[in-house]
Design a protein around this nucleic acid. Sequence first.
RNA 1: GCGGUUGUAGCUCAGCUGGUUAGAGCGUCGGAUUGUGGCUCCGAAGGUCGGUGGUUCGAACCCACUCAACCGUACCA
Length: 506
Amino acid sequence: MTARVPRGFVDRDAADLRAQDAMLATIRRVYETYGFEPVETPIFEYTDALGKFLPDSDRPNEGVFSIEDDDEQWMSLRYDLTAPLARYVAENFETLPKPYRSYRAGYVFRNEKPGPGRFRQFMQFDADIVGAPNVSADAEMAMMMADTMEALGIERGQYVIRVNNRKVLDGVLEAIGLGGEENAGRRLTVLRAIDKLDKFSTAEVRLLLGEGRRDESGDFTPGAGLNERAIQQIVDDYIAAAMSEFVDGTNNHAIRQLKASAFGTNPKFHEGVEDLASIADFVGSAGYGPDRVKIDPSVVRGLEYYTGPVFEAELLFDVTNEKGEVVRFGSVGGGGRYDGLVSRFMSQPVPATGFSIGVSRLMTALKNLGRLKTSERTGPVVVTVMDRDRMADYQAMATLLRNALNDDPSLPPVPVEVFQGNPKQFGKQLQYADRRNAPVVVIQGGDEKAAGKVQVKDLALGKELSATITDNAEWREARAGQELVDEAELVEAVKRILARPLSEKG
RNA sequence: GCGGUUGUAGCUCAGCUGGUUAGAGCGUCGGAUUGUGGCUCCGAAGGUCGGUGGUUCGAACCCACUCAACCGUACCA
């Protein structure tokens, strides 16, 4: 039996969890300043509550983790936080204030092949407004996303919130003759091809719109099979606008370019561009330029359920990982308007917009950026055990210190513990303290006890001094960083050592 | 899912043309030191050689199948 974590899942250590806590607190604070309030839903939902948008509803374990309850109903682990929110809102519709602003963080699960930075369990942190029909709500979402990035220490210019509108894409598809139920499959292929713009060149996207593309491994991806004219139209008019630069420092140029395109006469397209113009106006007036919120027609997201504006938070910096490979993180979150999702459970239409941050992914990015508070927390003050039968005394010392060092609840805790391993070899106790990154150990053997004294040892200082000593006998004799004080001065002596600045401790 | 590459100790890897008992460094544990971390020295534990089958007098090495990991690609709510 070998111990192994299931594929696609990870264990997280103390440093990771503390960093995540700090990160969640930062995000939460931004959301709270926009008036959002927390809500939590369970990690399981009935499969049909999630099911409509599953790749294949007849196979409950495809894409999601599902189990059959004893009443023969299928339940699934949630694969995002949006569908459960829609269920929650529908179920509590009468009592919730509308528009309902809520946020929630939680693990979601996907039963699919894991990859680098892609796990089968990961955390999302969502915010949504349900019951707000206007694009001003979408604009607010985009701005809040930008604020969140900056609150996390990602500087302006290192991220961008890209905004598009599903209606614009629908208009394009309609204009090139891909409207109607019979073209649903080809519509998806076209949208996926456009979505590849950040990965492939225009020439390769062109192949995906037409016959298809063969990748370097020899694998062939069938294309949408569009005719040359339709391809030309998409590339010249649409993709050109997507790639356009912001000549005047605003989003107006992109909007103008879209309006002037061959698709401009399509009603759906026009409506979508008007929405984008409004969003550009709202965010622009609030001081969010295209360096933060950018109108970008290449954004394709949530093909199955978004109905209006869609957003994507993208990190723009490259990072060299521990293997020496250059990695671009790309998307760390996204969202959009999903006017059809809540109304699945209800007889009335309920507009909604929201977004989701991929916490695990963003955390990896921040770690690489060096923006994550990974500073190791100080270890415990360790009270060592010299005389096994004086355990009660050591416990009393620990209690005294624990209370004295933690009387201000607004400060981070100072852990204090009695060594609970086998005290037979004293060296092991110091080794333990060293590994726990303990700042101080307290030592009281028979000699000290008889004199009413106690030894207080500064481990960091001792480590510094050890550099100058090469002989072990001498090192042991030196008792580096150690101080003999009266029992009554224990607390003060420990506080003194804890207060020593880190720089003096190496 | 498709294609490619790689699987030897906890980790990083060596292992000759198929030839005896599969090695090293790091890490872990024990000791030198039963009242002192680090350094140093000594010692020990730790291996289904990814798995199964085959070829052979003999397989970590060759063959077939299979599993896993990595990379690309597809999918991604």
